[in-house]
Amino acid sequence: MSYKTAQIRLVSSHPEVYEPCDDSFALVDALLSDRKHLLEHKPVLCMEGLWKWLCYYFFDTLLGDDANGAQFIATDINPHAITVTRETMEAHGVHAELINTNIMSGLESRLAGSVDLLVVNPPYVPTPEDEVGREGIASAWAGGENGRSVIDKILPVADKLLSERGWLYMVTLTANNPSQICRQMMKKGYASRIVVQRSTEEESLHIIKFWRDIDLEVDANNGVMNSEPVSPGILHSVRSQIQRLLFWGGSDINAGTN
């Protein structure tokens, strides 16, 4: 089996802006591996939150002439990241609306229920809580206790932003307890699967894809699925859960229909 690898051309940089690293490339490779489904999905409004210039450029490369007039919005809390992104995009002839904001704050009402594709590489590194939200480059990785402080704020915002057919791709770390994140999203009616798993010398990364499953019924008290009625959608969700269980046991899961 052959795999594509992201090819990145750096144009602009700043000492207070996080350079592309293993997590960046893993996320881009996850989108590449899912490119066929993305093209079939035909997202109209694409949004990238809490990352840097890398994905802004890549969105255009990924969809290319098949973007069909899709609009792109990119956000970051670091103003230097916005500048670097703008300069890099201009050099590549790529356009997106750039917004300097924290966790997509202020956009929930404006974009509620309209985002078809949301990609997030959040600050996920476990750090002391007082490091979360600091200015400068630390904002790119400081995730607080278990690396979940920012992630747990992003999930409800993502739920508000995503359209009925919206997809969310998120970078997580083993320390973030990805299985718990999936259970939280399952309670909101989202199925999920692991698109890419990648281990480095320093961390074990999981790129998770979430999508709404209207047939997914969840017991809000214990997070288990209601077994009746057993529809194709439920079977699909059950398959997704089995894939996750296999993954948490150490299997490399790259299969799935979404």
Rank of each mutant, 00 (worst) to 15 (best):
E131D: 11
S2R: 08
L107D: 04
K187H: 03
R198C: 00
V125P: 03
V196E: 02
F59Y: 10
W211G: 11
S240P: 12
E40P: 06
D34I: 00
V28P: 00
W167I: 10
W53E: 10
G133E: 12
H206V: 02
R110Q: 04
T75V: 04
D22M: 05
A158Y: 09
D152T: 11
N221V: 05
E97R: 15
E48T: 03
D152W: 08
N221P: 08
L54F: 15
V238C: 12
W51M: 14
V120L: 05
D252R: 11
N177Y: 14
A91T: 12
A191K: 11
S12K: 07
E203S: 09
M1L: 03
I99K: 15
D116T: 13
C182Y: 11
L27F: 13
G69I: 09
S105G: 10
G133V: 05
L168P: 06
V224M: 13
S179E: 08
V119M: 10
S240V: 07
M1A: 02
G223Q: 09
G233C: 12
T61K: 11
Q184F: 04
H41F: 07
R193D: 05
A96D: 04
L246E: 15
L205V: 01
V224I: 10
T88V: 13
C46A: 10
L10K: 15
Q184A: 13
A112V: 07
H80C: 01
S237Y: 09
P123C: 11
P229R: 04
V150M: 02
G166I: 10
R86I: 04
V238A: 06
M47D: 01
V120I: 07
T83R: 00
S199P: 01
N78H: 07
V195L: 01
F210T: 06
D34T: 01
S163K: 11
G233F: 12
I103G: 02
P15L: 03
W211A: 13
P43K: 01
L205E: 06
S139M: 02
E145K: 15
P43I: 07
E201R: 11
C21T: 05
P126S: 07
M225R: 08
A220C: 08
F58L: 09
Y3I: 14
G49Y: 00
D23W: 07
I137F: 01
V84R: 01
N146D: 09
P126E: 02
D76H: 09
D76L: 12
H14I: 08
P15M: 06
T200G: 09
K160D: 00
G113N: 12
A112N: 05
I208A: 00
P122L: 01
Y57H: 14
C46Y: 06
G144T: 08
D152R: 07
Q71C: 08
E90Q: 06
E131K: 02
D29L: 00
R35P: 04
D152M: 09
L155W: 09
N100I: 14
T85R: 00
A175F: 13
K4Q: 14
D76E: 08
M170I: 13
G147T: 02
L62C: 02
Q197H: 14
T127D: 15
A30H: 10
T5A: 00
S105L: 14
A142Y: 06
S251W: 10
L98V: 10
L10R: 15
I151E: 02
V157Q: 10
